[in-house]
Each structure stands twice: as structure tokens, then as C-alpha cells.
Design a protein around this nucleic acid. Sequence first.
DNA 1: GTGGTCTAGACCACC
DNA 2: GTGGTCTAGACCACA
Lengths: 122, 122, 122, 122
Amino acid sequence: MLPYTDGAPIYAQIIARIKADIATGALSPGSRLPSVRDAAVEHRVNPNTMYRVMTELEREGFIQAERGVGYFVVDDPALTDALRRDEASKAAAAFLARMDELGLSPDEIEALLHSLLKGGTP
Amino acid sequence: MLPYTDGAPIYAQIIARIKADIATGALSPGSRLPSVRDAAVEHRVNPNTMYRVMTELEREGFIQAERGVGYFVVDDPALTDALRRDEASKAAAAFLARMDELGLSPDEIEALLHSLLKGGTP
Amino acid sequence: MLPYTDGAPIYAQIIARIKADIATGALSPGSRLPSVRDAAVEHRVNPNTMYRVMTELEREGFIQAERGVGYFVVDDPALTDALRRDEASKAAAAFLARMDELGLSPDEIEALLHSLLKGGTP
Amino acid sequence: MLPYTDGAPIYAQIIARIKADIATGALSPGSRLPSVRDAAVEHRVNPNTMYRVMTELEREGFIQAERGVGYFVVDDPALTDALRRDEASKAAAAFLARMDELGLSPDEIEALLHSLLKGGTP
DNA sequence: GTGGTCTAGACCACC
DNA sequence: GTGGTCTAGACCACA
């Protein structure tokens, strides 16, 4: 796990990563997260920071604590789907911002995407 | 200037940044780059590493050295445009990969982009 | 290996030597070059300088790196032949310059060469 | 004046240089050579070595000593011309050897020379 | 000052 | 071992 050098607070960056992992299914619904201690080591972060991450994710309804066992990804298709759409929206917005920065018109963007979608690796 | 923790060699990351800056126009054609020594300080890198960056960029035809004066961004619209398209392609490919990761279909992607393009920040 | 006292940068002189060796076949296509470290000792040069030589030759397409194994002369008859013609042209140009310096006319040059070619070492 | 690292004795290399200079006219007939002391400094060589050079060149008839004045290039067109031809022969032999090393046939050599002679810098 | 070359020595990834 | 990256510091040529 690489260091976090984003400007945003570390705990927020970790939260974003975990949300993204839930959205993509890298963390599947119902699966158990690493223990706070292990996750802290993995992310090279103080256990207190990791605990804050878990607490916040639980507060937002994405994970659930089971005392003496650990944290689990909530198994709620609606919620996962919402997360998915949220991630997709963020990515799309960032993409469009980049396209704007590079001076591409909406038509050019569409053409570019279509060319990539057609000429994939079939 | 933030540290480089990407896995890719530092010099390659700096090259990518500079190319991106040329593509967006943040580095305008004909403009002078910081001296090797200054840029090295700025990027917190050894002057030799920065020199390698410059050399490679010059070899690829994006900048030009003038001995005793400095490096300058080549003023060639065709080249700049090619770089712009290249950056756009890379961004689009990354975006589509992300969308695929999130399980969006091409139609969903298109819908998402259209909704963002219409309801921008008016 | 003798010292390099040419005015031209050492790395360029070594590159020229290796190209000449490839052109004459002293370095045969497909053969392995000495390791960077060994070649550095052989040429009495810093390994980094030797590495630069290898890198440049690879960039020009004359040799190819295999990580953990070594550098190999590219086996491409067309390229080798181009190099041969290039070396021949350089030698011929230098020869003609010398003849001009000595004040020989084209006819005298031709006569001289023919006399040497006929009365070789039979 | 660069160091002599040829394998051949230094005095012989200096003799060859001076002969070559006489042949090309860089040292014109009748002109005065630098004093032994000056020439020794110039060639970074012991004055005794330089004296040997002068003595040998005088013995071979290319220069002449005038006591208390210095050495002068002999003004003898026949001798100068012989030297010229000798230099030309040596250069031509070296050139043909190089061409042979590169595997060029006599016909190819001729073609190469003609192409260079025609397409000069008129 | 600028870019350009060279050395010395370190550490990494791959095989 | 191999190639590849990076640092530190020196010296040069040019302007």
C-alpha cells in the first residue's frame, strides 16, 4: 500500500478507496474487512486513524461492525448500486474536466470514446 | 511539487507531467522551461535526473536545447496537437477501463456523460 | 584498450567504435556484447558512461537489451548493411578530403587506386 | 598538440606528421621550422627527441640546418612531389584496406567515390 | 549563469 | 550475476 499524498486528509482518502472497492466489487457484499490493526499496518497508518475510517463508513451505512468478529461489507444491492453510480459520476466528471482542459469539444469526446469502444481488443 | 510514488521511474513521471502540460497549454509553445538545476530543485530530484528528462523530451522532439540559454518548448502546432490527442486518448482509455470496472454498459456511459454535459455548471 | 583523445565525447567515440565493429562483422549479428561493467573496465570508463553507450546504441536500433542477460547485436541484415555503407561513405569522404589536401586530381586518385588494386599482394 | 599513443615510437610519429605537413604544403618549401626547444614544448616531448626528429629529417633530405638560425624546409619541387605521392599512396592503401574490411568490391568502391566526387558541395 | 560530460558509488528488479 | 535508476559532486564549453 502506497503512501497518501493527496492533500486531502488521510482518513478521507482511505474511505474513498474502500468505497471505490465496494463499488467495483473488489470488496464483495458480505465479505469481512481486515482487522483495524491489520488494515492500519497495511495502509501505514495509525490504528486510531483506521478506526475513524471504519466508524465513518459504518455511520454512512456501507459496513457493519460485529463485536468480537470484525467489520463486514453491508449486503444491500441498492446501496452498492448507489455507490457504483456515485463512483461512475465522479469518474465521468473528472474525465470531462480533463477533456475540457485539453480543449476537446463534446463531439470530439464522443468520437474518441466511440473509436475506443469499437476498436477494443476483441 | 509533491513526491513521486508511482512505481514508474521518477524521470518517466516527470516526462509525463511535462508532456501533459504541453498538451494542455500550461506550457505554451516557444516558452522557456526552468533551467535543469532549478527544475531539479523544484521536483526535488538530482540535476542529472532532470537532465535525463530534458534529454528524452528533446529526443522526442517536444523541447529544444539552446546551449547557455535553456530549454524551450518547440513551437510546432502539429506536434502539440498530436500530444493533445494522445493525452486525450490515454484519459479516455483510463476512463472506459474505470467504467468497465464499475460495470457500466456503453449505453449507461453515454447517458451519464450526456447528463453531465447538459447539466453542467451554468 | 587505448585512451580516447579525440575531442569528441568519450561515449561518442566508443559508440563509433562499436558501430564500426558491427559494420565490419567484428561484432557479428546476434552475438552478445560484454556486460556494461566489463566493458567499462575494458574501455577504462565509468559504468555509467558505458551504460550510456549501450542505451544510445539500443535507441538507434543496433543492439538490444535483455534484462538480466546482456546486450546483443541485432540480427537485421538490412540494418547491418546500412551501417556498412555508412562506414564506407565516411571513410571515402575522409580519403577524398586527404587527397584534396595533397592536391591530387580525380584522375590522379583513380590512377593511384587502380595501380594499387592491380598490383596488390598476389 | 595531442599526446602520441600510437604504438610507434614518438619520434617516428612526429617525423610522419612533419612529412605529411610538408606534403600538403602546411609547411611550405623554404619556410623555417620552430626551434628544437619550442617544438619540443609544442609536442610535449624531450628536446633530445625533437633533435633526433630534425636530424633524421635532415638525413632524409627534407629539411636543412643553418647553424645559428634554425631548420628550413628544403625547396625542392621534386622532393616535395615525391613526398606528396608517398603520402597519397599510404592514404590510398589504408583506404583500400578499410574498404576490404567492410567487404566492398572494387566496383562498389569506384561507384562510391564517383558519387561523392559528383555530388560535392558546388 | 546555461547545457553537457564524466566519475563514484548506491540501490533496485529481474533471471 | 544482468540491466536500470538515482544521487552527489566534479569539470568543461559556450554565451
